[in-house]
Design a protein around this nucleic acid. Sequence first.
DNA 1: CTATTTACATACATTCATGAATGTTTATAA
DNA 2: TTATAAACATTCATGAATGTATGTAAATAG
Lengths: 206, 206
Amino acid sequence: MVRKTKEEAEQTRKEIIESARAVFHQCGVSRSTLEKIAKEAGVTRGAIYWHFKDKAELFFAMREDVFAPMVERTDSLLLSDDFANPLDAIEASLKEFFRVLDDCPVVREVFEIMISRCEYVDEFSAVQEEAGRPAYEFLEKMERIYRKAADKGMLRQGLDPTAIARDTWAFTSGLLHLMLGCQKGSDLDKQIPAMISTHMALRRRA
Amino acid sequence: MVRKTKEEAEQTRKEIIESARAVFHQCGVSRSTLEKIAKEAGVTRGAIYWHFKDKAELFFAMREDVFAPMVERTDSLLLSDDFANPLDAIEASLKEFFRVLDDCPVVREVFEIMISRCEYVDEFSAVQEEAGRPAYEFLEKMERIYRKAADKGMLRQGLDPTAIARDTWAFTSGLLHLMLGCQKGSDLDKQIPAMISTHMALRRRA
DNA sequence: CTATTTACATACATTCATGAATGTTTATAA
DNA sequence: TTATAAACATTCATGAATGTATGTAAATAG
């Protein structure tokens, strides 16, 4: 039985991506053979080669599925007008980001793959650059919002918006890596909201 | 010409490690074949198998060569008695860490390999755990020193040593990852000392 | 209704990469 | 001085993994 309908084909495409995520997460990207992924998805390598040019393209597709919604989600909080204090927008956005990471296994797995189960060389160095752009955009957003907070007088005296934006930038990156890196026996997950609160409290007006 | 003297053998061992670092950095660990590494070192795979059980063991050796001196170096500053203010010890230690990373290519390459050119699965998941321990020890040290600073009255009012230790922990991890990840065209390197100063200034008594 | 694609499965050729086995000198210990 | 073992080089067998080429049945366009 071959030649499925268009919707069925789209479904197998999704199943291949799901399987790729599972196998990537378990074996690491380089040790994940297309045969394993195909078997996990209940298809043959032929199906994968039909939908994707090679493993790299499959990897990109898997990543994009998760990244875009994530950025949109956090940005909507970051740029929301519902917060009188811009610092509250930052705090809410950061907490939302890590909350999703904490209780959405799909998202978490993709981030774990990207952080500790992929080697960024050759075809994959492009991924690293693409992941670097959102990071820099995050920095710019932080700077803008901290400046707005300063204008509104919500920032603690003597703080430079650019400088503390960089501090928040590094803090967020580090939190992400620590959460996904040293997960095992640690109860870090539960302390993250408090850590974010502490971080923001450092820059609130007394 | 075979059967070198003991010192010569030790020398080729070191050359193998050097070559492994170069090849790991260029190709990523999984795509680094022992043949490539051997050729780079001017030996054959036989030599590598003589000195190391397999690629993983070679990887561990390469890592250990760089890590231990690094921890010792930063710890000596961190636990030094030369600083009247414990916060100065932290600041000096962090700056020293990133200074070495910045102008010692060997150290930088090893960290880059560990962060973005290695997949932490199977044999290598042990590496991640070993790298996680120093991270937790760093957290504990931070906590102790911040507490000491609090006792001496050098800490800004209302700050909890444990909480800001975690903040510094995440900050440092993030700085490391940002520095090694998004290196390319950014001038991040030059801003790192200022970022550390800013970070510490946030917790100094006004 | 049939011609053409689509959406795969199957088969094949080729290319590494590994680990072990074995060979070969030569330092070194006795 | 010689036996032993160190420090490699060479060779071999084997097992993936990849990409491509080809087969094929069913959906769909006309």
